[in-house]
Design a protein around this nucleic acid. Structure first.
Length: 138
RNA sequence: ACAGCAAUUCGUUCUGUCGCUGUGUUGAUACGUGCAACACAGAGGAAAGUCCGGACAACAUAGAGCACCAUACUUCCUAACGGGAAGGACUUAUUUUGUAAAAAGUAAGUACAGAUAGUGCCACAGAAAAUAACCGCCUUUUGCAAAAAAGGUAAGGGUGAAAACGGGAGGUAAGAGCUUCCGCUGCAAGUGGGUAACUGCUUGUUGGGGUAAACCUUAUGGGUUGAAAGACCAUGUAAACCGAGGCUUGAGGGCUGCUCGUCCAAUCUCGGAGGGUAGGUCGAUAGAGGUGUUUAGUGAUAAACAUCCCAGAUAAAUGACAGAAAUGUUGAGCUAUCAACAUACAGAAUCCGGCUUAUAGAAUUGCUGUUUUU
RNA sequence: CGGGGUGUGGCGCAGUUGGUAGCGCACUUGCAUGGGGUGCAAGGGGUCGAAAGUUCGAGUCUUUUCACCCCGA
């Protein structure tokens, strides 16, 4: 039984986490989003998510809020793709989606792009990446 | 009935599934809070722009003068205002009356104190743009004459946005508000009306270009800063170290500038190198509150009574999907109905009162115009 | 949340006490050259971001508004 929740625990809230993402994170691109992620080792598996919509591209606050809600909703409905993969692995993933397109999009196209984004994350083979980053740090 | 303008009001609704934020109750765990279930609540007329005014908070007990800034017909409303209401004056448009000048009505607008406190500015054109003599007119002197010199004079002169209050008569060497009559307008005095702005009448007048959204003058108001205000808790610690200046004969400081007063004052100031934090709670949602009725007032608004509790987030909550309804537009059509599309502007961030701007569409009222019927 | 600034020819910029809107580069035409560049001469192109107002007259003064940029945390 999967639960389609998205509570405060799964948000990125702290200023330092955002700083880390911007400074150290790796990124790729799936149509309206530019996705930045970072992977840490930890005892329990954990995924945190956040959306940003830059003011430069979309100036009205109502439209910005609409886009954020849509992306959060589509992540909430599809996050099990990533969770099923990561479950029982000692990994902490931070994920930040930056909306780059300059106009409003309807819900369905955003949902499709989020799905493809999460599938791409799975294909990256996260454990190997984690080892590599640790080796580079050492 | 249609169209236009103005004002006021409203500005999509319901059901199901999944989810977000807050509050309350219950449960298990546990005594840090988090988790689960249930119930209730959850964006606007502008939440926007940040253009004004307050509440609230801090700064030393918050004081004086100058500077600076803002406002500017009157009375009232208000916690306050640069906002609003009513009234006055002026301007514009229009209608009626009238030969005309003008008067009256209606509508709209007005940053509407002072140009008789002073200074400045008024391009080009024009003689001259504000103590006006270039031409002209007149007088005197010189001269045969032509003309020249000195003086008086704003009636006339193709300009210009604006030309020394307009017209008639007297007066004069020629002329002039120089005098007088009629008229416009300002100021002063008296008097009637009005709380007042203002206005009717009478008298006087060494008044008669514009510009104060030019400087300025007068009156009134403003202490400064701004929720990143501020209070508390947690974490960490360094009132440490080095260099320079200063130490009761007062350096220096104080949340706009200067001066004065006053207060604190060696636990000071500047530079170097370095350490820590960047989390939480309160502020912060019961209020100049909403709704309804009655009363007072021309009105803004106020008072009384009844009733209700109505967002409180902080990388920032209101959404998505499915279905139905409502409204509008377009097309088809048998005025029934069917299909497609659309449903604006836009998102609270300490809170209130205004102003300004954006806005699909709907309703009501008033005015104007056109057409049809009686 | 608070504070400040800029909009003028295609581009970059001047323009002070209100009085005929300018400069450089670019563009067009002509001359010069065998041709091009350089050079010389002439020319076109502006509702001064938008809307109101004050004034006889606004790029300039006042108000409202739109867009862009910067600073404080």
């Amino acid at each position: 039984m999967k639960r389609y929740t998205f509570s405060k625990k799964e948000h990125i809230c702290k200023r330092n986490e955002f700083k880390q993402l911007v400074l150290k994170g790796k990124s790729f691109y799936v149509f309206p989003f530019r996705c930045v992620y970072i992977i840490n080792s930890s005892n329990e598996y954990k995924v945190k998510f956040a959306v940003t919509v830059p003011k430069r591209n979309i100036q009205q606050a109502a439209k910005r809020n609409y886009i954020k809600r849509i992306t959060r909703e589509s992540y909430r409905l599809n996050k099990h793709i990533l969770h099923d993969y990561i479950e029982n692995k000692p990994i902490e993933v931070l994920l930040l989606c930056i909306y780059i397109h300059k106009n409003k999009l309807p819900f369905h196209t955003v949902e499709i792009s989020i799905k493809s984004l999460l599938n791409k994350m799975i294909n990256l083979d996260l454990i190997n990446e984690l080892k590599n980053t640790n080796n580079n740090a050492n």
